[in-house]
């Protein structure tokens, strides 16, 4: 499986239990629409885009996103998360080619 660079961001960086924070997934991805031609060869570049993103917090699915090729290159997907104890935030994203990728981060509320 090809490794794709991704990053999970929690904003603000410091938060406490019960707080609602912004969680974002950033991915280095071309998000090819399948409509674009290679400038040199003139051939259509095949569609290659992320089509779903799933945020799981301590094993519970919080948000799933179905997305399409209209999302920009190097996409960012953000939504909120209500902090409910320490644990792990796992993000799984899938490409239209069927490849599945995973990224996770620790959730550590202060105090």
């Amino acid at each position: 499986m090809a490794k794709i660079k991704s990053l999970i961001k929690i904003k603000p960086k410091k938060y406490s239990d019960g707080e609602v924070v912004q969680m974002s997934l950033m991915v280095m991805h071309p998000m090819e629409t399948g409509l674009r031609k290679d400038k040199k060869t003139g051939e259509i570049i095949p569609a290659d885009y992320i089509n779903s993103v799933k945020f799981e917090y301590n094993g519970k699915v919080v948000t799933t996103m179905n997305v399409w090729e209209s999302i920009s290159t190097n996409p960012v997907f953000s939504t909120y998360l209500k902090i409910d104890g320490a644990g792990e935030l796992k993000v799984t994203f899938t490409e239209n080619t069927g490849e599945v990728h995973e990224k996770s981060t620790k959730i550590k509320p202060k105090g």
């Binding site: 948000t63 996103m65 920009s72 953000s78 409910d84």
Partner: peptide
């Protein structure tokens, strides 16, 4: 974007 009460607030942001 399919949300749940665990989101705390309803928002989606992208480009």
């Amino acid at each position: 974007v399919h949300l749940t009460p665990a989101n705390g607030k309803a928002m989606f942001s992208s480009r």
